Amino acid sequence: NQASVVANQLIPIQTALTLVMMRSEVVTPVGIPAEDIPRLVSMQVNRAVPLGTTLMPDMVKGYA
C-alpha cells in the first residue's frame, strides 16, 4: 500500500508547508504520495487542513 501525505498539525489557510507539518501514512482514500513531501515544502495550502487530514492535490497551490 502506498503512503500518502497527512497533516501532522492544523495547517492554517495560506500557510507555506514545512517538513514538520507533514507525515506519511497509509490511508484511504489515497492522497498526495509521500515521496512528494520534498516537493511540497514551501508550497501553500489553499484551505485550512485539520490534524490527521490527508493532503489531496487540490489542497496545495501549484501542486496539481
Rank of each mutant, 00 (worst) to 15 (best):
N1K: 07
N1I: 15
N1L: 15
Q2K: 07
Q2H: 13
A3L: 10
A3S: 11
A3K: 09
A3Y: 11
A3C: 12
S4H: 02
S4G: 04
S4E: 01
S4D: 00
S4R: 02
V5H: 01
V6D: 00
V6P: 01
V6R: 02
A7K: 02
A7C: 04
A7S: 11
A7R: 01
N8I: 05
N8L: 05
N8M: 06
N8V: 08
N8Q: 11
N8G: 08
N8A: 15
N8S: 10
Q9C: 10
Q9I: 11
Q9F: 14
Q9P: 01
L10R: 10
L10C: 14
L10G: 11
L10P: 11
I11S: 02
I11Y: 01
I11P: 01
I11K: 01
P12H: 08
I13M: 15
I13L: 14
I13K: 11
I13S: 13
Q14Y: 15
Q14N: 12
Q14H: 15
Q14M: 12
Q14R: 10
T15N: 04
T15L: 05
T15A: 10
T15P: 04
A16P: 13
A16I: 11
A16R: 10
L17R: 00
L17S: 00
L17W: 03
L17Y: 00
L17K: 00
T18N: 05
T18K: 08
T18Q: 10
L19S: 07
L19K: 09
V20L: 12
V20K: 11
V20I: 14
V20S: 15
M21P: 03
M22H: 00
M22P: 00
M22A: 00
M22T: 01
M22E: 03
M22N: 00
M22Y: 02
R23S: 07
R23L: 05
R23Y: 05
R23I: 06
R23H: 05
R23P: 04
S24H: 08
S24G: 11
E25G: 10
E25L: 07
V26R: 05
V26H: 11
V27D: 02
V27S: 05
V27H: 02
T28I: 09
T28P: 02
T28E: 15
P29Q: 05
P29R: 04
P29V: 05
P29E: 06
V30F: 13
V30S: 13
G31I: 02
G31T: 02
G31H: 01
G31W: 04
I32R: 00
I32N: 01
I32F: 02
I32D: 02
A34G: 09
A34Y: 07
A34I: 07
A34C: 10
E35W: 08
E35N: 14
E35R: 06
E35S: 12
D36V: 08
I37N: 00
I37P: 02
I37C: 05
I37Y: 02
I37R: 06
P38R: 09
P38V: 08
P38Y: 10
P38W: 08
R39I: 12
R39E: 07
R39K: 15
R39Q: 08
R39P: 02
L40V: 05
L40D: 01
L40I: 12
L40Y: 01
L40A: 00
V41W: 00
V41D: 02
V41P: 01
V41C: 10
V41A: 05
V41M: 07
V41F: 05
S42N: 14
S42W: 07
S42Q: 13
S42D: 12
M43G: 02
M43S: 06
M43R: 08
M43D: 02
M43Y: 09
M43I: 04
Q44V: 13
Q44Y: 13
Q44S: 14
Q44N: 08
Q44H: 11
V45N: 01
V45F: 00
N46W: 08
N46D: 10
N46F: 08
N46C: 09
N46L: 14
R47S: 15
R47N: 09
R47G: 05
A48P: 11
A48M: 14
A48K: 11
A48R: 11
A48D: 15
A48N: 15
V49C: 07
V49W: 03
V49N: 02
V49Q: 02
V49I: 15
V49K: 00
P50Y: 13
P50M: 12
P50F: 07
P50G: 11
P50T: 10
P50C: 08
L51R: 11
L51S: 15
L51W: 10
L51Q: 14
L51C: 12
L51D: 14
G52F: 04
G52N: 12
G52D: 08
G52T: 01
G52E: 02
T53Q: 12
T53L: 11
T53D: 13
T53G: 12
T54Y: 02
T54W: 03
T54V: 10
T54F: 03
L55S: 01
L55D: 02
L55A: 02
L55K: 00
M56C: 07
M56W: 06
M56G: 03
M56E: 06
P57F: 06
P57I: 05
P57E: 07
D58A: 11
D58P: 05
D58M: 10
D58W: 10
D58F: 12
M59Y: 13
M59S: 05
M59L: 05
V60C: 01
V60Y: 01
V60K: 03
V60A: 03
V60N: 02
K61S: 14
K61W: 08
G62I: 04
G62N: 14
G62L: 06
Y63Q: 03
